[in-house]
Each structure stands twice: as C-alpha cells, then as structure tokens.
Amino acid sequence: MTTTIIDCEVRTTREINLALREAALEQTPVVLRNPDCRHNLAVGVTTPLSVQIDGHVGYYCGGLCDGVDIRVTGDAGWGLAENLMGGRIAITGSAGSAAGATMRGGTVIVGGDAGARCGIAMKGGALIIGGSVGVLSAFMMQKGVLIICGDAGEGLGDSLYEGKIYVRGKIDSLGSDAVIVEQTAEDAAMLESALADAGIHAAASEFQKIVSGKKLYNFSTKEKEIWKTAL
C-alpha cells in the first residue's frame, strides 16, 4: 500500500485536512511531517484513516473524528481527540487541557501527562494517560473509562454521572460525589488489557477505582453536605 506524505510546512491547514479526506476515500495511510504545533490537524475525519504525525500538534488534533487511527510522536495542545466517536488516537508526549473531552467512543492514549479537565464530560470510550492529570479531570463524566497511571489533580471526577476512573498514583482531592470503591475481577481484566494495548507496564492491582456516589442524581434536602455547592 502506498503512503501519502504531507509536509505541513508548505501547506495550509485547509489543504492538509482536504488531503487527509482524499486519502481516507482512497484508504491510503498518511504521514504528516513538520506539524509545528499546528492547530486543527486531522479534524472531522469520519471514515477509516491511518495518520502518522511526526512531531508536535496544536489544539483539537483528531477532534470530531470517527474510525481513525492517529499516532502522534510528540505533544498535543488543548482538546486532543475531543468528541471522538470511535477509532484510536495515541500520542507519545503530553497533552494540554481537556484531552478526550466529551469523547463518546474509541481509545485515546496519552504517553505523558495531560492537563486540566482531562476526560471532561466523557460520554464513552477509553482514555488512558501514561502520566499525571491536572485539576478537575473527569468533571461531569457521563460514561466510559479514564485510566490515569500517574497522579490526579484536585477535584477528580467532580459531579460524575457514570463511568469509571482508575488512578495509580496520588489523588490531590476527589470532587463532589466521587467515591473510591473496590475493584472487581472484571475491572482488573479490563485494566490489564487496556494497559497492555497502550504499552504501559503497570499492574491492575496498583489502581484505585473511582465512581459516582449517585447522591447528585436527584436533589435532596437530606443530602445537604453534598448539595451545598453542587447546584
């Protein structure tokens, strides 16, 4: 199979994304060179496409995609893989704020750290962070799995509805209604397979599991403590 090589340095973002769409039609894998932290690379690709990006990317890389396989050797800016529907987006470096925001399916892997609000409002899929995450990660998470191999910043899982968070390191603080529960055998099996897929060496038993306490599901004057700041 031939590979399309695109040098970002001499192309506009518009041209790069159009070339990616064409490659998706032809099912040709693409390599992007010299991305130079450009914003909005490989966004809105909703047909299967393999993209290798050699270098750092800016905001919203792989945003609004479905069925893609994007690999970035480098760092990413804000909103990596936001609203991903399916497929796999993996970066070797660190991600800015809101990595995997509102993603609804697929797998996102960040080799390094992720910034604030990682996995915010996740609605599905798996988001795996090799390093640590910033404040307010998994805020209002709705579904899906967030795996954090390092530490978590303040307010982890605040107001989460559903979904599961696994943290290997230290948690600065849990958010409203986020509670630590025992891992099940099912969790361990899932974790081991997800970590193996991400190429991360860690044992499932090292992770704490956090889920919703469900006390914020419906307003209750009997739960004054939890509701005093939640509304």
Partner: peptide, 16 residues
C-alpha cells in the same frame, strides 16, 4: 519549540 528546538521538553504550569 521555535526558540528551544523541537526536542525541548515542554512542561505545564499547573493550576494554582
């Protein structure tokens, strides 16, 4: 990266 090179290790100033 423009002034420190593409290999520079970029870190984030975190909340607070």
């Amino acid at each position: 990266h423009r002034v420190m090179g593409n290999g520079a290790k970029v870190r984030e100033i975190v909340a607070r």
